[in-house]
Nucleic acid binder design. Structure first.
Lengths: 340, 340
DNA sequence: GGGAATCTTGCTCAAATGAGCACGATTGAT
DNA sequence: ATCAATCGTGCTCATTTGAGCAAGATTCCC
């Protein structure tokens, strides 16, 4: 009972009375036999020592402190970080991921709506995330916007299907037009890609995409759950090979390693759509990435300058800012530009 | 994007700027284009809606709000509730329980030290918890106190052992004397209990115990980990039988059900020490109970008026205040006063 | 559509709080 | 032991914040 840290304990007592009992510092002074200034200093000390944790628990809460750190430390033009509060209450990991994606997409939709100058032409990728963003966009989010797909859809035969929905919905809600890219994402041969690319309609779409005033895209993680595996573009073995060569995920269909480099030049050469260099050169590139599975690809995206604006979740933001997790993770393999 | 709950969202944004960015309400008003009064109201609204969670994370933090609710709703004279912050960080459940007990015991020691009028005679039980309380008491916590054991020790032959340590340490640190109760906790036959009880020295101790100005005790849960099973007073089967008849735990060696009634009159008749009626009649009875395993016995203790002061942990306090968990738990059996 | 009831808003004023300062106590070096 | 430096303390003053109020806006009921 020797009061070595009596001041610390006292500051805790003061903080309890202040924050939990809503007493005034003067009253606390009376209770603890201290001057009100001492009480104020004790509470400030408790705050400074990190004993006071103030959290805003709301599905649509953001984390401005993390956003600022992302801007400053990572050098992003802007960052939107949504709260993960309550996510751990989900018993089902998949349901949690869906909720997190929904929150992130909501925030992205809001950001897009408030973006000034409003993009005249918006280049978009496709996928679950883009779909969710489209869902959360409000009718009339823009007043006339040209939405252009920037990478190939799942399949030519289903080109009016899922992949197109996001672009169409974004355009419709923004009182604008959607231009779809009528091509598969990955071709079987380089020559086929070149042939399709030189087709007049496709070339026109790609040209419009190249001139977009802003880009909105997500990223996929490199594992057997990838949309490319699910849609048959890549086999499980091919994916495993990509991972073995350092792939952490894809952006607009192009697989990159932790440094943001193309993992497999040959595969990339068969991939149709905007080039990563074009994204890196663009003024406004908004990446929407959430979920624990995408921490690595998120890092690759930001460190290699693929986006100027990142919309993500708290956990991903923390992972990005954590120097420890910047170290090469599990399978850090020197990338080979063309291993296949 | 139709702003149904735009006010709620706005209040979240305001709260973020206020609590996370440390901006003044005036500045926030400037940013969000609101008057500073509106900002103040939004923040108040966010607080009232429970979106702002302020938590004091410190091993020795208390929960005054819970303490007040325990006093008011349960009718305790006083309540001390220690924080469980950081407990879930323990990977080992046993280690977590130990830490929790340590915190609770620390708070109990503090309470005892500050108790006024200081008890002239203090009746104490024994066990891990009491041992921990003794450990946390500071040298000179009292200036002369008569400490009396109020229930039998583990065994006659080891009477100077573990059980005695707590009482002796409490007395020593309080510059006082310890009076031990030289008897087993539970005898094999009623007659033996009567014989020991009528022994002059034992009778004197019991008389002193009966006249104590304050009592300090813990409670044990009714399961195979009970100290009575460990020390051989009860077999695993006997314990199972007690549980089957509604026993939730013991206080000073006497097993009670959820209502606080003696579960087995015959067993109780063989148990030596202070009667529960004496505890219920006493002016100052301090129960120190912590840990998830003791939620039921804690409830039994408070609802049956066995203590006037409860020292416990946050989770136990919440369980006590939760009307849902007040409902008969798992094995709610109508107690039979004498089933054996 | 009129009118009462309620809610919201922007204010005044008082309470509460934080910044900065001067003074006394404590510490540490010589 | 002495002096300087540092620290903690209690203050003044300015800023920030919350309570209460009256006017305007909105809703709701008929």
């Amino acid at each position: 009972m020797i009061d070595v840290d009596s001041d610390e304990l006292l500051s805790i007592r003061a903080a309890e009375l202040y924050y939990e009992e809503n007493k005034t510092q003067d009253e606390i002074g009376l209770i603890l036999s201290l001057t009100r200034w001492k009480v104020g200093r004790l509470i400030a000390q408790a705050k400074a020592s990190g004993f006071i944790r103030i959290e805003i628990v709301h599905p649509r809460a953001r984390r401005p402190a993390l956003e600022r750190r992302l801007r400053e430390k990572i050098g992003l033009h802007d960052a939107i970080v949504v709260s993960t509060a309550g996510i751990d209450a989900f018993d089902n990991a998949a349901a949690a991921a869906v909720e997190l994606q929904s929150r992130t997409a909501h925030a992205a939709a809001e950001y897009l709506t408030a973006l000034r100058p409003a993009p005249r032409t918006l280049g978009v990728s496709w996928g679950h995330t883009l779909h969710a963003v489209a869902h959360h966009l409000g009718q009339g989010w823009a007043h006339g916007v040209a939405v252009v797909q920037i990478n190939g859809s799942v399949s030519l035969t289903r080109s009016a299907g899922v992949a197109a929905q996001a672009a169409v919905a974004i355009a419709q809600k923004g009182a604008g037009t959607a231009t779809l890219l009528p091509s598969p994402a990955i071709l079987e041969r380089r020559e086929t890609r070149l042939a399709i690319e030189s087709d007049r309609t496709v070339a026109a779409v790609l040209a419009e995409a190249a001139g977009a005033s802003a880009y909105l895209f997500s990223a996929g993680q490199a594992d057997e759950n990838s949309v490319h595996v699910a849609s048959g573009y890549l086999s499980v073995d091919e994916m495993a090979a990509l991972v073995a060569h350092g792939a952490v995920g894809d952006v607009v269909g192009r697989y990159i390693n932790a440094r943001g480099d193309i993992v497999d030049a040959e595969l990339d050469d068969r991939t149709l759509g905007i080039r990563l260099q074009q994204l890196r050169a663009a003024a406004v590139t908004i990446a929407v990435i959430s979920g624990a599975a995408k921490h690595e690809i998120a890092r690759a995206v930001v460190v290699s300058g693929l986006c100027t604006v990142l919309v993500t979740d708290e956990d991903t933001a923390l992972a990005l800012l954590d120097p420890a997790s910047a170290a090469a993770p599990a399978s850090a393999v020197e990338a080979n530009p063309n291993f296949s």
